[in-house]
Structure formats: structure tokens, C-alpha cells
Design a binder for these strands. Structure first.
Lengths: 344, 344
DNA sequence: TCGCATTATGCAAGCGCTTACATTTTTTGA
DNA sequence: TCAAAAAATGTAAGCGCTTGCATAATGCGA
């Protein structure tokens, strides 16, 4: 029993005392109001109001063994790559009565492992993770703890894990095909860091595959790997343009890198797309804001987020195994890509 | 005691049993390892490892009445306005041993109220809030619950609340002074929504004040209020440019709006800054990526985040009242602002 | 060697909530 | 009108952890 000290935080006991019912009834009022008489409900709600009572989440989680919380672990919040999808995820979760807890890893596998444990120990009922690549121990841990987990932003038909996403390899290959068919032969790529990042790896291999299809030597393509920051995109672009002859098209692992490349091109006095074509991936807002607008791969982020939420909730409520869903990405042709000019 | 079922989640009891010590010792091993003999520590850690034990956060919070968690409630994660500052906040918190919980409100006061209650009921030891404007009941609630709260992104010397930020009014006024002294007389503004947003209000009043100082009628300035999205900035810009004569400078409440305005200017065949100057506020990455780069007010987001973390931690650990700190913003003059051309 | 100060450990009482089960009250149908 | 079914409420046993206090082990100086 909490004492009568008006300065201590009110508890369920206090509400029960004030409203003259048992703690069980108060609890039911809050969680399953239709199992309680209207009279009781009114008394209890009044007491709740009067006391300014807020349930203690930890206690509730411990007693109920449910938190109605979903955890999401994303590589970064710094740029907008995951923002839109996550927003949709959150909105859908909210309509299902769940709360979202987000944390980010800075693309560090070790940090991700920590965050997974943290979220689980905080009682997340389910988890959203980005991409497949991670230590099998983690998958085992999640299985042991029986925390339903859905993987997003990646798709592979051979995946043993529930997942929803698009085919990074095929998407980038599709874009590379366009680039090549437009006449580009000297193609370079600014890729995200491949290690532990299946999405980045897929995009790179997609470009190489398209080149091979067209009789070009994909393995000889100049590639700079760097983390997803505009300034890195800029630096990588400059480096790639040192080659002689210069590439006529620079394909980037995502829009952030591409925008960095465009900025540096401008600073170097190069005109896009006349002197060099540049492409991105993701189709975040940035892509339509730069001059010229960026040719990129449009990813249905919002749909992915929304469906991820639906599927995950279903997984926890039905105890089902979870689906493997492929979403379609589409090419977004804009001004930053054009046929190479004759004098190059 | 949890049963021997190897499929159930291991608890402290299990660790105690396996390592042959009491639960108290296990707990101390985990929380205050230097109060425990080396022998015990080794045995316990082995058991922890072997069992794959993770402490239950809810139980721990309930018993210890501390969570080492700080909550931050920001208006939006959609654009990058708060990203950099929050990142720094998080990093600093991490080095102090705290975890950050973020949630966003979509600029809805009601949602913010909910989120505050949610974070408190989740046991946040302290809170970071953006801006002053909110229902006094909320402040009272936080006081009653004695949750240390720091307000960021805003500064007012008369504030009764602990806060760290910059003077939105003065910053924008400074920028407006430049614009006017450059020769602009017909100035329009695309402002964020003022209601319940002291930062947006301060920026608008800053422009008006600068105009008055220069003998212009600030109240007559054409203003469109809209929420912070590029597409809204674009629409507002188009609307403002219908005026005859057209404004020679459009000042925007933040960079996101400004970038939208620039995009629409380009679409309308207007050259920036020859036909019209555009300015922003925040100096997020976007500002340097657009063409021409955006003149804006640079806000020391990272420093603000870092110091906010430090101060907040101090508040909870010393029980101190918390400071009121002003940070300096600086003008960032770039290509989007120039003197009006003669023919306008 | 002994006695006392230190250090290490254990015991057990909660922390605030949910929920199975038991009990009481109300409703229903004949 | 009354018994049985249904609805509402109460009782109390945990959920997994921390920590004040009591007890046991160890170290140290003389």
C-alpha cells in the first residue's frame, strides 16, 4: 500500500482505495472495461483523473508478460533513408494498438547486437530488423526468446526468415541496364560499405550483372566503397573522376551518395548530365530537390512500412511464422541521367 | 523460482542456482561488480553466458526505481531538422550510461501530451522537450512526478524552465537585417505554423522587427503559414509570387520550406537569386546540396544536443534545478541571397 | 594467537501490476 | 417466486529484480 503522502506517485492501490473497489476491478477498468459495471467504471475513472494516475509500465509488463511494444532497429536516423518507411510502420502499429521503439546502430553489427538485446530485455513483443546479414547467434537468441522478428528492406526468395522488401540486386540491375542501353560504357560506382550489408552488396552485384549481360567487364568497373554520407559521396566522386578516360556515368548506392557526387560535380565545374550522368537509389525527397533532379530507383517505402506493421502484428497475435513478401521497385528517370555526349 | 524448463527465459534465479550463489550476489555482480569477490564474479559471469541471461528491464526498473533512460519528444523525425542535434544528444547520453527513447508528435500538442505520459510511465528518468509552448497541466504533471525536464531548441531569458537553445527571434532578425541592407524592400515570408510553436512565432516576429527597424511596415509583409514540408514550401512560394509587384526576397521559416520554394522557383523558370532571393533557417545538410546553396541561419545543433545531454544528466544526478543556456546562431551567407536586380 | 575492522554474502521484503480462482450480486426463465 | 446461469467483484499469488539489514568470511595489527 502506498502511504497517503500526496507527493508520492499514485498507484493502482491508491485508485482502488479512493474509488472504493478492489485493485482487480481497477485493473479491469483500465484493460477490459467491458467486463466491469458502468457504475464501477465511472467511480474508477474519476479517481484516476483526480489522482493523475498513470500505470507503471514496468509493473504492467512484468505481470502481463506483454508490452504492446514493437522494437525497430535501423542503421541510421541521420539521413532520410528509413524515415518514411518507419513513419508508415509506426502509424500502422499505432492503429493496431502497439507502440514503436526505435534505435539505430550506425551500421555497426556490434551495436545492433546490443540493441537487439536491449529491446528484448525491455520486453518488445516483436522486432523489425533491416536486412538479412547478421550473426546467427542473434537469430538463435531471438528464437530462444521466441520474439517474432520481421526483416525489412531486403528480399530473397531463399530466405529462411520472415521478411518484406525488394530485390536490391534486381532493382539496381534494371537501372544499370537503362544506363548501358543509353550508350554508357565507362561506368563507375560509388557503393555503400558491403561488409555485413546485403542490400549494398546486392546493388553492387546488380550493376556488375547488367554489365556482363551487355558484354562489359563488370569486375573491372571502378568502385569506391564508402559509408552513406553526402560528403563521402563527394569525395568518392572526385576520386573516380581522376581516371583517364573518365567515366561517363557514376552510379551510386543510394541517393545520399548521389547527391554528394552531384555537389562535387558542380564544384568541379562539371555539368550533369552533359559531362557525366549520376544515378541514385531510394528516391528520397532529396532526389527531387537537387538540380538536375536525380534519376533513381523508387522504393515503395511507405507501403513496405505499413505492410511490415500488419504482418508483424499478425505474427504475434496468431503466432504464425510470418511471410516472405516481395515488393516491386520502379525506375524513376529524371534529369541526372542522359546519353553520353559524343566528345567523351 | 523458474522451473528447469530450458525453453523458458532464464531469470536471475536461474543464474543464481547455476552459479551456486544467492540472487543478491548475482544482482551485485551485474550492477556493482566491485562489491563482489572475483571468484563469485567469474562463476556468475559464466552462468550468465551459459544461460544467455538478459535482465528483465521492467523488473529492474520497478525494484530500482531508476531506468537510466531519458525520453526525448520531438515534433518530427521526417525531416532532418532534429536529427543532428538528437544524434549528438544520444551519443553524449550513451557515454554517461543512459539510453535514449525518442518519440515524435507530428507537431500535435495532444500527441505530445500522450507521449509525455507514456514516457513517464515507462520510467524515463528525465525528459527532453522542444520549445516552451505547452499546456501548463503538463508542466505541473512533470513537477508532481518530479521528472527533470530540459527544454531545447528555444531560449528565452524569462523562461521559468530549464532550457538550452538559441534566440529564434534575434537570429531571424539578424538575417532579415542583412536581407534589407542588401537592398530588398519587398520581402515575403513562408512561415511554419505559429500556433503552439514559439520557435516559428519568434522567427516571424524577428523578420517583422527588422523591417520596422528599417522603417518598413512589417505587419504588411505577405506571410504564408504552413507546416514544414518541401511541397508546402513550393506551394506557398508560388502563391506569394502571384503578388504584383512580386517580392524580391522570400524568407522561409526553415530550410525545408526554403528548398521547396527553390524547387518551385526553378519549375516556374525563375532564377535564384537573380529573379528572387530565398533564405532558410537551420542549416541542415539540404542547404548545401541545393543549387544555388542556401543562405540560412546556422544553428549549432550538435553542440546543443551534446550540452543538453550533459545538463540533463547533471540535473538528475545532482537533483539540481537546471540551467538556462543561450547558444549563438550564426549567419550562413550563400548563393541564394543577393541584392535585388535593378529591373525589379 | 586473538579481537576487531573490512569485505563478501545471504535473507527476505517489497516494487506496482495482472489474472486464475473464489465469492457475491444480478439477471433470467419457468 | 425461486433456482440456476451470467455478470461483477474480490482475494491473493506471483512476475523478476534490488537492497537494507543481518550474518559469515577474511584481513590485519599487536
Amino acid at each position: 500500500m502506498s502511504m497517503n503522502n500526496p507527493h508520492s506517485v499514485p498507484t493502482l492501490d491508491d485508485v482502488a482505495r479512493v474509488s472504493g473497489v478492489s485493485t482487480a476491478t481497477v485493473s479491469r477498468c483500465l484493460n477490459t472495461p467491458n467486463r466491469v459495471s458502468e457504475a464501477a467504471r465511472i467511480k474508477v475513472m474519476q479517481a484516476v483523473e483526480q489522482l493523475g494516475y498513470t500505470p507503471n509500465f514496468g509493473a504492467r509488463a512484468m505481470a502481463a508478460k506483454r508490452t504492446f511494444t514493437i522494437g525497430a532497429i535501423i542503421p541510421t536516423m541521420e539521413n532520410a533513408i528509413f524515415a518514411r518507411g518507419l513513419q508508415a510502420f509506426q502509424e500502422e502499429l499505432h492503429t493496431c494498438g502497439y507502440t514503436l521503439l526505435v534505435s539505430s546502430t550506425g551500421y555497426q553489427a556490434k551495436t545492433e547486437a546490443e540493441q537487439i538485446r536491449t529491446l528484448v530485455s525491455r520486453g518488445a513483443d516483436g522486432l523489425l530488423l533491416i536486412g538479412y546479414d547478421r550473426d546467427p547467434d542473434l537469430y538463435e537468441f531471438l528464437t530462444r526468446r521466441s520474439v517474432p522478428t520481421l526483416i525489412a528492406w531486403a528480399f530473397s526468395k531463399t530466405s529462411p526468415h520472415a521478411s518484406i522488401g525488394f530485390d536490391n540486386h534486381a532493382s539496381m540491375r534494371m537501372l544499370a541496364n537503362e544506363v548501358i542501353e543509353m550508350g554508357h560504357r565507362r561506368i563507375a560506382m560509388i557503393s555503400g560499405l558491403i561488409a555485413g550489408n546485403d542490400r549494398a552488396a546486392g546493388r553492387l552485384s546488380g550493376v556488375r550483372a547488367a554489365m556482363r549481360t551487355h558484354g562489359l567487364d563488370g569486375d573491372a568497373m571502378p568502385v569506391v566503397q564508402t559509408s552513406y554520407e553526402t560528403k563521402n559521396g563527394a569525395a568518392a566522386f572526385e576520386q573516380l573522376m581522376q581516371a583517364n578516360p573518365r567515366p561517363t556515368a557514376v552510379m551510386c548506392g543510394n541517393d545520399v551518395l548521389a547527391v554528394g557526387a552531384m555537389r562535387r560535380a558542380r564544384e568541379m565545374g562539371l555539368d550533369v548530365p552533359r559531362d557525366v550522368s549520376i544515378t541514385g537509389f531510394d528516391d528520397i525527397e532529396l532526389a527531387r530537390v537537387v538540380t538536375p533532379p536525380l534519376t533513381t530507383v523508387h522504393v515503395p517505402h511507405r507501403e513496405m512500412g505499413r505492410r511490415a506493421a500488419k504482418e508483424l502484428v499478425q505474427m504475434l497475435e496468431n503466432g504464425s511464422k510470418g511471410p516472405v513478401i516481395e515488393l516491386q521497385s520502379t525506375l524513376q528517370m529524371r534529369g541526372s541521367l542522359a546519353a553520353p555526349t559524343a566528345d567523351h
